[in-house]
């Protein structure tokens, strides 16, 4: 039996968050680890339509910038960062970019770039260009 409690507005907000926690935080997350120099150019990652996408990249002092001109069929919905010192040489932060894929699109592309790439990432993200090609599959 549920215990009766008096819910204030903040509590209702938290209840919604709790419900969301139970429902999971399902999104596609891509990091620099997704890039493999041995992969063929234009490698496509299939994703389900309607599921958010997030890109996480090591940063600080370098800064990654979303390249809207080179990207397609995605809308940037948010940016953020996490302190993350001493994990990857030459970086102290993880920078995040959140995206929604356009309704009805069967392809999408995300490009983020930096002009201050640490040597530790030179072979993983050549030229400081992180590009991601997505194939959108109906759920």
């Amino acid at each position: 039996m549920k215990k009766r409690i008096f819910l204030t507005l903040p509590a209702l907000c938290f209840a919604a968050v709790a419900q969301a926690q139970d429902a999971g935080i399902f999104q596609y997350v891509f990091t620099q680890s997704y890039k493999n120099p041995a992969d063929p150019p234009g490698r496509m990652q299939p994703i389900r339509a309607g599921v958010p996408v997030q890109v996480q990249l090591p940063a600080g002092p370098g800064v990654w910038v979303y390249d809207a001109g080179e990207s397609s069929n995605v809308a940037l919905t948010g940016e953020g960062s996490f302190d993350s010192p001493d994990r990857i040489a030459g970086t102290d932060t993880i920078q995040t970019f959140s995206f929604a894929v356009a309704d009805g699109a069967d392809r999408a592309k995300i490009v983020v770039t930096t002009d201050n790439l640490p040597p530790s990432l030179a072979d993983i993200v050549p030229g400081g260009v992180f590009d991601l090609s997505l194939q959108v599959v109906s759920p």
Partner: peptide, 21 residues
């Protein structure tokens, strides 16, 4: 799939990527 670390509430993603909890 291969599992790699991430920041945020779910500490890992996969390669190929899948939504995770």
């Amino acid at each position: 799939a291969g599992i790699v670390p991430t920041a945020g509430p779910v500490p890992f993603t996969s390669v190929p990527a899948m939504p995770m909890d």
